[in-house]
Design a binder for these strands. Structure first.
Length: 103
DNA sequence: ATATTGACGGGCA
DNA sequence: GTGCCCGCCAATA
């Protein structure tokens, strides 16, 4: 299985109302240095079931290049209960995904 | 093959 | 927190 496919699998495991950073996804995918590649993987987004909108950068900022724009991503997150800042950012302290303590 | 780009991360200012 | 620089790896030109 390629790294990309693994990334998709990890992203799918992100619970609703939670957001994970590219670094987090890359780490769970097995390669902490491939944060950027995670970005491509999601950009390709060959599978619509992959909640790519739950993946944000280290600042919790939404992606400018998201399909449709960061507005769309922020809208999706807010629809899941994630509070999006006016600057298009999420509070990782509260909505950051914690695999070791999801609940 | 090399150079540039890119949905990034970390360190430093 | 934000901006700049460097490092990282894969895709594209």
């Amino acid at each position: 299985m390629g790294f990309f496919q693994r990334v998709y699998r990890v992203v799918e495991t992100i619970p609703p109302g939670r957001v994970a950073t590219y670094g987090q996804v890359a780490l769970l995918a097995g390669n902490p240095r491939m944060a950027r590649q995670v970005g491509w993987a999601l950009h390709q987004c060959p599978d619509p079931r992959v909640p790519c909108h739950r993946v944000v950068n280290r600042f919790g900022g939404l992606s400018d290049a998201f399909g449709g724009g960061c507005e769309e991503q922020g809208r999706r997150l807010s629809a899941e209960g994630v509070e999006v800042d006016d600057s298009g950012r999420v509070d990782l302290r509260r909505f950051g995904w914690r695999p070791a303590c999801e609940n």
